[in-house]
């Protein structure tokens, strides 16, 4: 057999092996669904079979501490509520800017009966995100000015 053919076969085996591994690895804990609160229903029953990462906003007044558990709700921009529980003393650390209205990404599993999300991890924002967008900063600034002027008046 020609050497180039042999190399071609070996190359195909390496690439094929890695692709096969990639497909195998994406089942179970290898991958997770990343959805907004309002999109969970579109996943159907598979939402209960795989870990989820859900983005949403902490509903105002929903936070309640019970023993080792923190209960709260996440709401989507376009509606939808997700009752969430988090073992804040044993499972993970609550971010300090975790507050009513905070934008959060929670990672964990969805349970049925009653339908609730068990968060294993809660994130708000990361430090390598050096800054929010420039316009947003400007708007915030102008809004604070508006408030200051209102107070002066």
């Amino acid at each position: 057999m020609n050497n180039m053919v042999k190399f071609g076969i070996c190359g195909a085996l390496i690439l094929g092996g890695v692709i096969w591994l990639a497909i195998e690895a994406q089942s179970g804990d290898g991958s997770l669904y990343y959805v907004k609160v309002e999109e969970i229903d579109s996943l159907g029953s598979s939402a209960y079979e795989r870990r989820l990462k859900v983005a949403g906003k902490v509903a105002a007044g929903s936070r309640r501490y019970e023993g080792e558990w923190l209960h709260f709700s996440i709401e989507g921009e376009k509606g939808g509520q997700l009752p969430t529980e988090f073992a804040y003393q044993t499972e993970g650390v609550l971010p300090d800017n975790f507050d009513d209205g905070a934008m959060v990404i929670v990672e964990g599993v969805l349970h049925q009966d009653p339908r609730r999300f068990e968060a294993k991890q809660i994130q708000t924002k990361c430090s390598s995100k050096y800054e929010a967008d420039y316009d947003q900063k400007r708007n915030e600034y102008e809004a604070s000015q508006e408030t200051a002027r209102g107070a002066e008046r």
Binding site: A22, A25, D29, S31, L32, Y34, R51
Partner: peptide, 16 residues
């Protein structure tokens, strides 16, 4: 479906 690959996925492939 909106899947994303988590650290276990990378670890499983990068091991071999």
């Amino acid at each position: 479906p909106p899947l994303m690959m988590g650290p276990p996925w990378f670890n499983m492939i990068m091991g071999p």
